[in-house]
Each structure stands twice: as C-alpha cells, then as structure tokens.
Write a protein that binds this DNA or RNA. Structure first.
Lengths: 253, 253
DNA sequence: CGCGATTTGTGCACGCCTTCACAAGCGCCT
DNA sequence: AGGCGCTTGTGAAGGCGTGCACAAATCGCG
C-alpha cells in the first residue's frame, strides 16, 4: 500500500502563490472533516461579505461553531494554506475548499418528486447560491408533468434517462413518497447517477460506488424529543443528588 | 411526572422480574445510539404493519440498514428486551423505544417561518405519524398572519410567548431566513423552548441546557459533491494503480 | 428430560476522531 | 537586524464507536 500521497510542504515557498498544483483528489480526507468543510465555507463567505481579508483559526472556528484545534487539523489535511502569526487568507481558503468539494463546476442536480417538499426544494435558493444548479424536475404524476416550478417544467419520470444524459446529471434529490423511492433510485442508478440525497424515510439499497445521504426530518425531531425527555426526567427527579449539574443556567421567565 | 411505566411483560415471571424497574431517564445512552433508535423504530413499525410479531437482530438490522452487532449493542443499552433463541418482540420493542424517546406524549411542536420550506414542513405528514403534533405556526410577515396552513392559522411572531405557554411547547422548528434565525431563537429560548430544529444555514448560539440540531440541505449536497469529485478524479487518473478498488457489483438485497 | 439449534448480550481489540499542548514560523516594532 | 508576540501545524494521548467472536440462555423436538 504505497499509495501514500506525499505533499511537498510549501514551507520554503514563502509567497502566497499556490505552492503546489492543487491535487484535485483527496482520497484519504477523513469523513468527519469532509462533513465540516461546507460549514467552514459558509462561514468564510460570510466573512468575505463583511470585508474580512484574513481570519485566524480561532475567529473562523467561533463563527463556524467548532473548536479551533479541530479547525486547524481539518484545514491541515488540505495543505498549508495559512500564515503563522497572521491567519488564513479568506479568499484563498474559499477557493481551496470549493476546489476540494468540486463546487466550481456548477453541478447539475435532478429533483425527483414534486410534492410539498419537492416544491420547496425546487424553490430553495440555497442550492443555487452554493454551487448547484437544479437542472431538471421529475414526477410520476402525469397531472404534474409540464407544470412550471421555479422556471422549470416538470418532466415525467419516464424521461429520466434521456434528460439525465443530456444535462450531465450525476446527483439526484429524491423527495418522493416512500413507496416510490426505491424504484426511483433504481432508475437513477441505471441512468448513471452516482450520488443521491434521500428525503424519503426509508433505507435505500444501491450498488457499490453510489453514495446515498439521508435526511429524515422526523428523526431529527425524535432525537430532540429524547433530550427533552431526559432533561425533564432529570429536573423532575430529585432522587439523584443534583450536584455536578453546572448547566442549569436556563433563562426562566 | 408519573410514569405509566408498567410493562406487563408477557414472558413468564420466571426471570425474577426485571433486573431494575426501567428508569425513564437514560442519562448515559451513547449519542450514536440515540441517533439510530428512530431508525429502528421506523423499521419496527414497518415490520409490525406487515404482520411480524418477532424479529431477530439480523432481520431488524438488515431492514434498518445497520450491522446486527451494532443493533444488539444499541438495544442492550435499553435493557434486555430480547429472548435468546427467538429474537425481539416487535410490539414490546416499539413500546420501549417510544418510551425512551419520549414519544408517547404527542409532543407539541412550534414551527416558525411559513415560507416555502415552512409550508412544506407544516404539511408534512411524517411528523404527526411519528409522535409529534404541530401545535402552532408563526411568521413575522403580517401578510401571512391568519392564513390557514394545514388547518392551522398562522400567528404573528409577537404572540410567541403566549401560545408557547398555552400549548406547552418545548420543541420548535426554525424555518426562517438566516437574518431572522438568531432573533427568533432568542425569543424561543426566552419563552422556555429547550429544543430547536434549525433549517436556517447559520450557527445559532443558545444557552446551556438548550439543544439545537441543524439540517442544512446545501451542506448535504456539497458532501455528495465531494464524493462525486473524488470518484471522477479516481476514474480519470490512471496514475494510481486501481487496485484495492473493490467495486464488485454485489447487489445488496 | 435432555440435546441441539438458534439467537441474544457482551468482553475485547482496533481504528477513528477529538483535544491538548507545544515547537516552528511569521510579521511587526524598536 | 534582532527580539517579541501571535498564530499555525502537528505529535501524542485519551475517548468513543464499531465489529468480531463467543459464552449464556432459550425454545423445539425426539
């Protein structure tokens, strides 16, 4: 396993110019780091919009809501793009993270399922402003086909293969009912889609090489419910000595 | 708070009763386990609806999309609710998980921000079917106040304290624009809300004792984008030997 | 009644992630 | 030019989570 990617450190190259031709692929970037990069990116855009040219790890970390050591370690995986004693160049770091995430290409995304949630997603401006382009909408309901949503006409699901190929779509968002989700995903995979964001509350099976991320709104609420339940039990039960409870600074009215 | 926590426990009283009367609070339940319990619960409901009375850890794990050892370890944290040689009683396990998550109480949830996403969330049936009740809608736009959404009239945000108290709301969903999110959250916390599900793409600051979970749709897409980018780089770069790439087309079932 | 088949519950080891703490590097001021 | 303060990048330690592998426990059946 000599596939270790050696990174010639730019320690000697004291300029702010790109030390090395940025390797586009980061095969061994920790998954936890990847999940945080978008958050850093959003924070950096905020900083850039408010006129900041450079930012320290402490400053960026607090804006992004993480620990500064964690932030530095995350960024160190991308290479050395900071300057000791000064901080990070905001614009350069934005560029670097966007390159790593592959956001400079305006990726085309397909949205399948134009119900309540699908409508909201199609109209959501956050996708476009963050590097994506909703290229096509699909639905199985013939009554919805042709309906204009946010400037796009809804295609029937049977046109999937044709449109996906024409628009070079590699990412799809599934916002269908549960009963249709697996069928739709099978079609998507057959058309060559290799990344899927699933809003249907079910487990999808896909072949190796296809990535699936799931967003389940009810699950998030249920997790919060547990914490509510736990907090209520703790405050209601004086049986345990309430020592060492240092976080009871809740604002009471 | 009185626990209606009595389990008839149909299995014979041979087991010298329960090791301990199940405590309502699980202070030391691992966070990773908590995050998976809702998934197990959903899978269990599916099994119950299809006529299954018992299920093995292997069977439940495959339906829930996890490893069977992980499932068993997760459930073991709740106590021993399985029968060796047989499996888990579906109905009993549902009851137990719902109790742990605090879902037997029909928790009242407030939804703040009735825009595109807020509308979709208000109409989303998945909340109600999984133990929650959307008790009130709020918006800062006076033009929207009074508008009926899914059978509820939209309140103005100024009525927050009053309605939250009257409906005993402890969980809130924030679906406002970024600019309003922190202000809304401050109000919510002041009203006594202690759990918040945030859809606004920003970091919220809350006092200790308040839980925040964040759902950022664009971040999910960006994570997928990275994997797309990486996959494309790998296939396009013949420089690295393509060994160790086990893309077997094993069709998972 | 005992035995084998089956499944749970869990001790253990391993790997990932987080956090601390500090040396190395950089700019600024004198 | 040289020192000083500030910040990055990183080695090391600890904690958490995962998955294996197996003993314990239960049921069904002859």
């Amino acid at each position: 396993m000599s596939d270790r990617q050696r990174e010639p450190y730019p320690s000697d190259g004291l300029g702010a110019s790109h030390p090395i031709p940025p390797p586009n692929a980061f095969p061994d970037l920790p998954e936890a780091t990847i999940a945080r990069l978008p958050e850093y990116l959003r924070a950096l855009h905020n900083l850039a919009d408010t006129g900041h040219d450079t930012v320290s790890s402490e400053g960026l970390a607090s804006v992004a809501g993480v620990n500064s050591a964690k932030l530095r370690k995350d960024l160190s995986h991308l290479g050395s793009y900071g300057t000791r004693g000064v901080g990070y160049d905001v614009a350069l770091l934005i560029e670097q993270i966007e390159t790593v995430l592959g956001l400079n290409q305006g990726r085309a995304v397909a949205l399948v399922g134009v119900g309540n949630l699908g409508h909201a997603l199609a109209n959501y401006g956050g996708f476009v402003s963050r590097g994506f382009r909703i290229a096509a909408l699909f639905d199985a309901d013939s009554a919805r086909v042709g309906e204009p949503v946010n400037g796009l006409a809804v295609h029937h699901i049977s046109e999937l293969a044709e449109v996906v190929a024409a628009e070079h779509i590699s990412i799809a968002v599934v916002a269908t009912p549960v009963a249709a989700a697996q069928l739709v995903v099978d079609d998507l995979v057959a058309c060559g889609v290799t990344s899927i964001l699933n809003f249907a509350p079910c487990v999808l099976s896909v072949p190796d090489g296809v990535d699936v991320r799931k967003v389940d709104l009810a699950i998030e609420l249920q997790i919060l419910s547990f914490h509510e339940h736990r907090k209520a039990s703790l405050t209601a039960l004086p049986s345990l000595n309430a020592a060492a409870v240092s976080d009871s600074e809740a604002v009471a009215t």
